[in-house]
Structures are given as structure tokens and as C-alpha cells.
């Protein structure tokens, strides 16, 4: 099995596409944080700033027609700003971990790149004809497919790690290494303002985000195994991802949508206490994702195992 996985890794690593993707990943991550630094305005008096923010949030809640998600977000921010002023807790500044925490959107980039890699790993063997020589070895098809799945999953995990490492390094250059025991205000799962460790929250968010990444990897992998066409696999997966993001909003009106993977695939919603529906919990979301992963992986396994290889 180790041999099979190192084979698959060799095939991923020796492709130009892989290196282009890794380069883009580093460039986009570093670029985002550099832009963030350049656009930063120095805060002279945090209390005055928080007062100003509170006014703005209140204005938004009263006047604008906000989507439920935005409304909840603004309410949360208001609550935290209020808590800061009452308890005299300054916002954290100049900590690389807290900046990483705010850039959860970069995880979507890892998802897109992982979709592209996963779409290729099986279908490419078919389009290049190498599947024939691959399958006439003393290994069951299940083992061969599984080693491919493990390999793309490991590669996706590597990309996620690379994102965090690059982000941390760039921010560390600007702000220093950052204190691991720094705390900040968050809303806990009951919606109460609580002081939490910033580093641990960051680890939680990026760590748990592996599951949504894995579910898109599985989706793309399965489509490409069944259709033997990587372009279609990328196209369908991206389409589902984009449509899925807009479904998150709709989930607040239609309770049934909470069983779809989309409203469950943004871990940052739980870090910032913005569940798509009040009854949804982190545990619920993770279970839904695991279910989808198992069903999709099982589907591609059955198809791959049984099919005549022309």
C-alpha cells in the first residue's frame, strides 16, 4: 500500500500543473496578506474606534435590508464591540494568528485547487491509456483506487498546511511571531461573548476545514472516476461549489437544505457563531460532511471495481 501511495505521489509531483498550482497558492496567499498590511490604517484610540463601529452597526441593523446571515453577523459584531467597551478589552492587533483567522476565504482557494488535482488522478489514467498497465499488477482494483484517493487527500492536506505556513510567515515578517497565549473575544456556541485563545481558534478553523476540502475532493474524484473526464469533473464540482455558496443563505428559509453539504462546508461560520440555522451545530455539519464523503467514495469504488477497462 505504501508503494502504491508513493507511486501516486510521484505521479502528482511530476506534473507541471501541480507546480503551477503550488506557485499560485503561495503567490495568492502571500499577496492577500501583503495587501492587508498595505491597506491597514493605524488605530490611535481603540475606544473611539469601537464607538464609531457600534454606531455604524446599529445604523445598518435599522436601515438596511440585510440578509439573515449579514444581520446575524452585524449583530454579533455589535455585541462584541459593546462588550469590549464595557469590560475595557482592547481588540487584538499585530498577531499573525488573528489575521489568519480573518482570512478564512483563502480556504476556498485550496478547495478549488484540490478539485483540479482530484479530477485528474483517475481520469488521466484512462485518457492516456496507462490504466491498462496499472491494473495488470497483483493488486486489487479497490486498493489501487484507494491509494489514489489517499494520495489526493494527502496532497490537499499539504496545500492547506502550505496556506497556513505561508500566511503565518508573511504576517510574522510584518508583526513578529505573535504570542500563542493571546486571547480575544468570540461568541461561543450559545451566543455568549467569551474570551478564547486566538491560536487555538485558528488551529480549529483550519484543521476542521480539512473536512469540507475533503468532501469536494471526494466529489471531484468520484465524478472523474465515473465519467473518466477531468474537465467535466472540474466543471461540475466548481459549479456545485458556486451554487452551493448561494444556498447557504437560502438554508435559513428552507430547513431541508441543511442536509445538503453546502451550508455545512464553511467552518468559519461556527468560529464566528453564524450557523445557517439556529439548530445547526458544528457536530451536525461535520457528520453531514462525513456522510457525503462516505457515500461518494463508496460510489466511485463500486463503479471502478466493476467496470470493464477498455
Amino acid at each position: 500500500m505504501i508503494g502504491l501511495i508513493s507511486n501516486e505521489m510521484m505521479k502528482i509531483v511530476n506534473r507541471k500543473l501541480t507546480w503551477i498550482i503550488l506557485f499560485l497558492l503561495i503567490a495568492i496567499t502571500a499577496g492577500s496578506f501583503v495587501m492587508n498590511k498595505l491597506n491597514e490604517e493605524p488605530v490611535s484610540d481603540w475606544r473611539a474606534e469601537q464607538m464609531e463601529l457600534m454606531e455604524r452597526y446599529q445604523g445598518q441593523l435599522e436601515i438596511d435590508e440585510l440578509s439573515p446571515q449579514m444581520y446575524a453577523d452585524t449583530e454579533n459584531k455589535l455585541q462584541i464591540a459593546n462588550y469590549r467597551l464595557q469590560n475595557d478589552i482592547a481588540p487584538v492587533s499585530g498577531n499573525p494568528w488573528s489575521i489568519l483567522l480573518r482570512f478564512s476565504g483563502l480556504i476556498e482557494m485550496v478547495i478549488i485547487f484540490a478539485i483540479v488535482i482530484a479530477a485528474d488522478v483517475v481520469s488521466r489514467e484512462y485518457t492516456s491509456g496507462t490504466i491498462k498497465l496499472l491494473l495488470i499488477r497483483p493488486h486489487s482494483r479497490s486498493k489501487i483506487l484507494f491509494s489514489k484517493y489517499i494520495s489526493v487527500s494527502l496532497f490537499a492536506l499539504g496545500m492547506l498546511a502550505l496556506l497556513v505556513i505561508t500566511g503565518y510567515c508573511v504576517n510574522a515578517i510584518f508583526y513578529g511571531f505573535g504570542n500563542l497565549s493571546t486571547t480575544d473575544l468570540f461568541l461561543n456556541s450559545e451566543g455568549k461573548v467569551t474570551e478564547m485563545n486566538v491560536f487555538l481558534q485558528t488551529v480549529k478553523m483550519y484543521g476542521l476545514s480539512f473536512l469540507p476540502i475533503l468532501s469536494y475532493v471526494t466529489l471531484s474524484f468520484t465524478i472523474s472516476t465515473i465519467l473518466r473526464n477531468s474537465a467535466l469533473a472540474v466543471g461540475i464540482s466548481l459549479f456545485i461549489m458556486i451554487v452551493g455558496n448561494s444556498i447557504i443563505e437560502a438554508t435559513s428559509y428552507l430547513p431541508g437544505l441543511k442536509y445538503l453539504p453546502f451550508a455545512n462546508s464553511d467552518i468559519s461560520l461556527y468560529i464566528f457563531h453564524l450557523p445557517a440555522r439556529p439548530e445547526m451545530t458544528l457536530g451536525f455539519s461535520l457528520s453531514v460532511l462525513v456522510m457525503y464523503i462516505l457515500v461518494l467514495a463508496g460510489l466511485s469504488w463500486q463503479v471502478f471495481k466493476k467496470r470493464d477497462t477498455a
Binding site: 505521479k11 511530476n14 506534473r15 507541471k16 492516456s128 491509456g129 496507462t130 491498462k132 498497465l133 495488470i136
Partner: peptide, 9 residues
């Protein structure tokens, strides 16, 4: 089988 299809890259 058929052509010697190997990994070109």
C-alpha cells in the same frame, strides 16, 4: 495490451 501506453511525463 494494445499500445505501450506509459506515463509520458
Amino acid at each position: 495490451v494494445e499500445n505501450p501506453d506509459l506515463y509520458k511525463y
